[in-house]
């Protein structure tokens, strides 16, 4: 079990990885990746009960599905630091013949990935299937997911949200990255969704909110509370209020860095705000 300082150091290193990965290939999605760095670091290193190595079926261990696959940089960095593949492989992100495709996939056999994602709105359905397989297998571990808030505009989510509560899929914790931004602007200007909390509640989920979604301690507390709600007949939704581009001042509070890489100077500036902690790959 890691302490908060260790998790914070890892988060800083993950931020550097994200920035260097997207800078190298001048493409990728740094904004949402940076916003979810604390969450994924906490999830993989403290919250989830994982087994060593990687087995697709994931029996008797917690599983995670990334539905908003475009934040692959943070996913890959966290997976590498968690030991699923060598950290040096982050160097191959988005390059030809790489296992680190632009969006995560099982197709190239990258350990840690159980489903392709990128076309939005599909991850919750898959996670529900995995959660129901766990129940059939008598496996009492949990299934976690992460979704963008803009992603909830895809209708398949609402089929899944309706189904999960109706069928009492109570071994599922779905986290929504509530950063209020999407490609064309804020979610409130592109397609206002009203109260996401009220919607999940109306669909029969337990909902809790982590107000400080970029604070490790707040995330640990929130996810611990979420875990305590599992097994009680309802799926659990965590609304994680994050700041897109967190940790890099000029990338924060804007949708501008959703899918844009920093220039050489911007990279230097961004890295200077996040000094090396565990060593660059």
């Amino acid at each position: 079990m890691a302490n908060t300082t260790e998790l914070q150091d890892l988060t800083t290193q993950v931020r550097r990885d994200i920035l260097r990965m997207v800078h190298k290939v001048n493409s990728g999605h740094p904004g949402g990746s940076l916003g979810c760095a604390e969450f994924l670091v906490a999830l993989y290193n403290e919250i989830m009960d994982r087994k060593d190595g990687f087995d697709m079926n994931g029996l008797n261990e917690d599983l995670f599905f990334l539905s908003n696959g475009h934040i692959s940089p943070v996913f890959y960095s966290v997976l590498a630091h968690a030991g699923y593949f060598p950290v040096e492989e982050l160097n191959t992100f988005r390059l030809i013949n790489s296992r680190l495709q632009g969006h995560p996939t099982t197709h190239e056999g990258l350990p840690g990935v159980r489903i392709a994602s990128g076309s939005l709105g599909q991850g919750m359905s898959v996670a529900i299937g995995a959660a129901q397989a766990k129940k059939l297998n008598g496996d009492n571990k949990l299934v976690y997911t992460l979704h963008g808030d803009g992603e909830l505009q895809e209708g398949q989510n609402w089929e899944a949200i309706m189904y999960a509560s109706a069928k009492k899929v109570d071994n599922l914790i779905s986290t929504i990255d509530l950063n209020g931004q999407q490609i064309d602007g804020s979610t409130d200007t592109v397609l206002p969704m009203g109260s996401i909390e009220a919607k999940f509640l109306a669909f029969g989920w337990d909902v809790l909110t982590v107000e400080k979604g970029n604070d490790i301690d707040a995330i640990l507390k929130g996810m611990s509370d979420a875990k305590a709600l599992t097994g009680k007949g309802k799926p659990v939704c965590v609304l994680l209020k994050t700041v897109m581009g967190n940790g890099v001042d000029f990338m924060m509070y804007t949708h501008a860095w959703h899918g844009k890489a920093p220039s050489d100077e911007q990279l230097e500036n961004a890295l200077s705000q996040n000094p090396e902690t565990l060593g660059d790959y």
Binding site: M56, N57, G58, L63, F65, R114, I115, Q122, G123, M124, S125, V126, A127, I128, G129, A130, A131, Q132, A133, Q156, A160, Y163
Partner: peptide
Amino acid sequence: GIAAGLTI
């Protein structure tokens, strides 16, 4: 999607 997940 659920079918895909059940294979896992």
